[in-house]
Design a protein around this nucleic acid. Structure first.
Length: 484
RNA sequence: GGCCCCGUGGUCAAGAGGCCUAAGACAUCGCCCUUUCACGGCGGUAACUCGGGUUCGAAUCCCGACGGGGUCACCA
């Protein structure tokens, strides 16, 4: 059997990481089985529709390396792939169900329903539609229709017995039928509800494996009843637990920090995001942690999807990101980091390739880069306390002596290259009978103005250039003379 | 509240009756390397929710409690 899965987001905003993971698992499963991955846009709720959201979905998926075989923009034999464009297709199916007694017209207004709902709540009961309109005769229905009364079509669900189905990750599920409500199939505006459109579309599009969040676990019996009423084959179900923000809340669109685009803006690599996301709720059963998309496809197995929700851990994502950055070819790293350098170093004449070499192993997220290299563009204000470091055996007094010793040495260097600076400085330190740290620490502090820097004194001196190095050294000397 | 699902360290998780004195990873702590920081290396702290069963033997099976999540819309 040709496997066909689908990702069916509603265009209500940016794609958050939970949604991205659903897409990923669907994509992985389809590819793993040489099947097709279909993209369908579920925009039946005009009130929540957000302009441009569909494009964001396309861009995000492509960015992450997930290509769909059929979809709104690429076409396919089962289109259209945008639900609103399929609008007219659903009503006939609903009517068919009305004819066969599996559904019925309902003329109850929202207000009436609301009253009954509140009355039920007042009695401490759960409101369930009472099939009020089921008993209308054919004539009465026609009369109301002719009179132009607003209507909806509801499913006629059984009230006794139970319905079972099998889920690939949760196993066998059974629900008592009396918990099934007569859900609305066609809304008053003529649009199908998600519940209905979803069944019709999945069938029409030949979806063999329905993959979706586990929040649909309990409404699946109602969908199965629909499939049966039509005499259609019920698809295989793969329900997935949610990705949580913390123990109590799942990642949602209301949490701005969960958007894929935000992570990209902060300097996370899409490969790292995908790799990490794949591992929240699923594992390969081995110790392998790093996966390319192809390796993910190869290792993926829906039976290894966990049933319990997984909490999204930015820490681990950040670690993955740092690892991916370290593994980047140097040229690629340089290219990616350049705009981040530019934010604070544009026009400063800093040698980016060398800086990039120094920075690559220290970059966890690109957005941290500007703060880490800003000192090269402008010497920050710093305190003389920085000259004190126990392990380096230095303090302001020692630092003053060290810097006074090293300044003329640096000034005397004509070939300002790292090796020459290194050899000259180290030789001078040895000649003076000093410890490396007693000179190198103060030097680095004087020219960088901060306790930790990417690279040591020599590298920074080279990056800064002779002139700027001496200028900063003088500033440091001045400060030290005033405090000593 | 009814119904459904789930419950191994702070987090992701391996584990499908004896191999568990419970892997691995992130985080955290310590040491080493080192001209700082980072990288890297080594080591440490830290978990089977609880209570009953079943069994020679249970993290693994059963029941209950507790905890968490979901669902009960003309939203998807």
């Amino acid at each position: 059997m040709q496997v066909r899965t689908r990702f069916a987001p509603s265009p209500t905003g940016f794609l958050h990481l939970g949604g991205l993971r659903s897409a990923l698992y669907g994509y992985l499963f389809a590819r793993k089985n040489q099947g097709s991955f279909i993209l369908r846009i579920e925009d039946t709720d005009q009130e929540r529709y957000v302009e441009g959201a569909t494009q964001v979905i396309y861009d995000t998926l492509r960015d992450c390396g997930m290509n769909w075989d059929e979809g709104p923009d690429v076409g396919g034999a089962f289109g259209p792939y945008i639900q609103s464009e399929r609008k007219d297709l659903y009503l006939p199916y609903a009517r068919q169900l009305v004819e066969s007694g599996h559904a019925y017209y309902c003329f109850c207004t929202r207000e009436e329903l609301e009253e009954r709902r509140q009355a039920a709540e007042a009695r401490g009961e759960v409101f369930k539609y009472d099939k009020h309109c089921l008993h209308l005769s054919r004539e009465e229905v026609q009369q109301k229709l002719d009179a132009g009364m607003p209507w909806v079509i509801r499913q006629n669900a059984p009230t006794e017995g139970e319905t079972s189905y099998h889920d690939e990750v949760f196993g066998d599920m059974t629900f008592p039928n009396d918990s099934l409500d007569d859900m609305v199939l066609i809304k008053q505006d003529g649009m199908p509800t998600y519940n209905f459109a979803n069944v019709i579309d999945d069938h029409l599009m030949g979806i063999t494996h329905v993959m979706r969040g586990m929040e649909y676990l309990s409404s699946t019996p109602k969908y199965n009843l629909l499939y049966q009423a039509f005499g259609w084959e019920i698809p295989a179900y793969i329900h997935m637990p949610p990705v949580m923000r913390d123990e109590h809340h799942k990642l949602s669109k209301r949490d701005g920090d969960a958007y894929y685009s935000d992570f990209i803006a902060k300097g996370y690599l899409s490969e790292a995001i995908i790799n990490y996301l794949a591992l929240v709720g699923w594992n390969p059963g081995t110790d392998q942690e790093f996966f390319t998309m192809d390796e993910l496809i190869d290792a993926f197995d829906v039976h290894r999807i966990n049933k319990a929700p997984g909490i999204f851990d930015v820490n681990k994502l950040t670690w993955f990101n740092a690892e991916y950055i370290r593994r980047l070819p140097p040229e690629k790293y340089l290219e990616t980091v350049t705009p981040w350098f530019d934010r604070v170093l544009a026009g400063k004449g800093i040698h980016y390739p060398r800086l990039a070499e120094l920075m690559q192993d220290r970059t966890e997220i690109f957005s941290q880069v500007p703060d880490m290299v800003a000192f090269l563009g402008k010497l920050p204000d710093y305190s003389a306390d920085l000259y004190t470091h126990k392990k380096m055996k230095t303090n302001p007094a020692i630092a003053l002596a060290s810097l006074e010793m090293i300044r003329p040495v640096l000034e005397g260097i004509s070939d300002w290259s790292e090796t020459v600076i290194h050899d000259t400085v180290m030789a001078a330190i040895a000649d003076a009978g000093l410890k490396n740290g007693a000179v190198l620490w103060p030097l680095r502090i004087a020219i960088s103005g901060q306790a930790s820097t990417p690279g040591g004194a020599i590298e920074i001196a080279w990056l800064l250039g002779k002139e700027e190095t001496l200028r900063r050294l003088d500033t440091g000397l001045e400060m030290l003379r005033s405090v000593n």
